[in-house]
Amino acid sequence: MKSFERIALIVLDSVGIGALPDAEAFGDKGVHTLGHIAEVRGLSLPNLSALGLSNIEPIPGNPAAKSPRAHYGKMAEVSAGKDTTTGHWELMGVHTQKPFKTYPNGFPKELLDAFSQRIGRGVLGNKPASGTAIIDELGEKHMETGDVIVYTSADSVFQIAAHEDVVPLDELYRICETARELTLDDRFAVVRVIARPFIGRPGQFERTANRRDYSVVPPHETVMDQLAEAKLDSIGIGKISDIYAGRGVTRSVKTTDNMDGVDRLLQVLKEDYRGLAFINLVDFDSKYGHRRDPEGYGRALEDFDRRLPDILETVRERDLLIVTADHGNDPTYKGTDHTREYVPLFVWSPSLSEEGVSLGIRETFSDVGATIADNFGLNAPRHGTSFLPDLKMKQ
Rank of each mutant, 00 (worst) to 15 (best):
Q97Y: 05
N105F: 12
K101W: 04
G87C: 08
G120E: 07
E90A: 05
G106K: 05
F107H: 01
K109I: 08
G93Y: 05
L112W: 04
R118F: 07
K109E: 05
K101I: 12
I119V: 14
L111M: 03
Q117P: 01
R118Q: 05
N126Q: 03
F100C: 09
P108W: 06
L111Q: 02
G106Q: 06
V94P: 14
P104L: 08
L124M: 05
R118I: 03
T86L: 11
L124N: 02
W89H: 14
G120P: 07
L112T: 02
W89N: 11
N126K: 13
A129W: 02
K98T: 13
I119L: 11
T102G: 07
M92Q: 08
R121L: 10
K127N: 01
F100D: 12
G120W: 09
P99M: 04
K127R: 12
T102M: 07
K98C: 05
G125P: 09
S116L: 09
F115V: 01
H95K: 04
G120H: 10
F115K: 04
E90L: 04
L112D: 03
Q117S: 14
V94E: 12
R118S: 15
K101F: 07
S130R: 15
V94I: 15
G120R: 07
G125W: 12
F107V: 03
Q97W: 08
G122T: 10
G93V: 10
P99I: 05
L91E: 13
H95D: 04
F107A: 00
F115N: 03
F100E: 11
I119K: 14
T102Y: 07
E90R: 01
M92D: 06
L111T: 01
G122W: 08
T96D: 06
P104G: 11
E110I: 06
K98V: 13
R121G: 01
P128C: 12
E90S: 01
V94S: 10
T86F: 07
P128W: 13
P99T: 07
K127F: 00
K98Q: 11
A129Y: 02
H88S: 08
L112E: 01
G106M: 07
P99C: 02
K101L: 14
Y103E: 03
H88E: 11
E90C: 04
S130V: 13
T86N: 05
M92V: 04
P99L: 01
I119Y: 09
S116C: 07
R118Y: 09
H95N: 13
E90G: 09
L124T: 06
V94Y: 08
A129D: 09
N126D: 10
H88C: 11
L111A: 02
N105H: 14
G93Q: 12
R118P: 03
M92C: 03
V123R: 05
T86V: 11
K109N: 04
H95Y: 10
K98L: 09
W89M: 04
G125F: 10
P108Y: 05
M92A: 13
Y103A: 02
V123C: 06
S116G: 13
G87W: 06
T96V: 12
D113R: 00
G125D: 11
N105P: 06
P104R: 06
K101P: 06
A114T: 15
M92G: 03
W89T: 08
